[in-house]
């Protein structure tokens, strides 16, 4: 029997390039991170990552990221909804604006947000509470940099939802709220969850935008990525790597959970026998 021949061309070349790229750009830095960790004993590793100042930074980072991604879940869904469901003048511009947080240098975003939300700033002066230089500032910065994740994952799925499905719910007498809850939301739920998860993972590691608005007060407004940079500036590479590994493991676990959930969901939707 002869070996089955591959009809699609370029398999070896493209896979080869992809693997080399993944190795150089992704795995090599990760490998050196693990290499740095090898210099640490378990006891030392544990004492670094459970340092009270670091523990405080985890709490601040996770809570702010959670709040920011929850906000983005709602706001991003709204933006995607508006962009898919309606036609209005300036739609293309709004669509393009959604990518701005990706295009803008995060430091610029951070400085702009801190200026706007400072107690004398254009927005800050109208608010009765402190945003810039508080943990709320961290939330705003995180929300700003990660909103495209939600919009860009929900948008294509929403576009795929045929109008007839919506119309079917209406002709069956469902109210708008009922149709949204029972028909549209379940349809976009996996995408919404993925987008929110990506936004959360991104927020966990956000540095550039956050440090300009956070105020960076120990135990109060220090994020974990700042702790990594602080260790680096002290040339304590193993400690920096240890803290970074916590963020890395948290993000990887999150992505894994989302992927498993999504795979299960799609298997259900597309029928159990294939896929």
């Amino acid at each position: 029997m002869s070996k089955p021949r591959r009809i699609l061309p370029g398999f070896h070349l493209s896979l080869g390039i992809a693997l080399v790229y993944v190795s150089i750009i992704l795995l090599l830095p990760l490998g050196s991170l693990v290499g740095q960790l090898a210099d640490l004993s378990w006891a030392r590793y544990w004492s670094i990552i459970t340092d009270p100042r670091n523990l405080a930074s985890y709490r601040i980072t996770v809570l702010s990221a959670a709040l920011a991604s929850l906000f983005n879940m709602l706001f991003g869904l709204l933006c995607a909804w508006v962009l898919v469901r309606y036609t209005f003048p300036g739609k293309r511009i709004l669509d393009a604006l959604m990518d701005l947080p990706f295009a803008l240098p995060t430091a610029v975003a951070g400085i702009t947000i801190s200026t706007l939300y400072a107690s004398q700033g254009a927005i800050g002066q109208w608010l009765g509470f402190k945003v810039a230089y508080s943990w709320l500032g961290i939330v705003v910065a995180m929300a700003f940099t990660s909103v495209p994740f939600v919009v860009r994952t929900v948008q294509p799925v929403l576009e795929e939802l045929p109008a007839s499905v919506d119309e079917a719910a209406i002709t069956l007498g469902a109210s708008n709220a009922y149709a949204f809850r029972r028909v549209i939301l379940p349809f976009i739920w996996p995408a919404l969850l993925t987008g929110t998860g990506l936004a959360f993972a991104r927020s966990l590691g956000e540095y550039g935008a956050v440090i300009f608005v956070a105020g960076n007060m120990p135990y109060k407004t220090e994020v974990t990525s700042l702790m990594v940079v602080t260790r680096l500036q002290e040339f304590d590479y193993p400690a920096a790597a240890a803290i970074a590994s916590v963020v890395l493991i948290a993000s990887l676990l999150l992505l894994l959970v989302i992927n498993i959930y999504q795979a299960r969901f799609f298997r259900r939707i597309h029928g159990n026998q294939h896929v």
């Binding site: 007839s164 002709t171 029972r182 259900r268």
Partner: peptide, 17 residues
């Protein structure tokens, strides 16, 4: 919603979830 007609769509438009 209030006309109370049954409508069968060309590609059925079943709720796939």
């Amino acid at each position: 919603r209030n006309r109370r007609v049954g409508f069968v769509f060309q590609h059925y438009a079943l709720f796939r979830h």
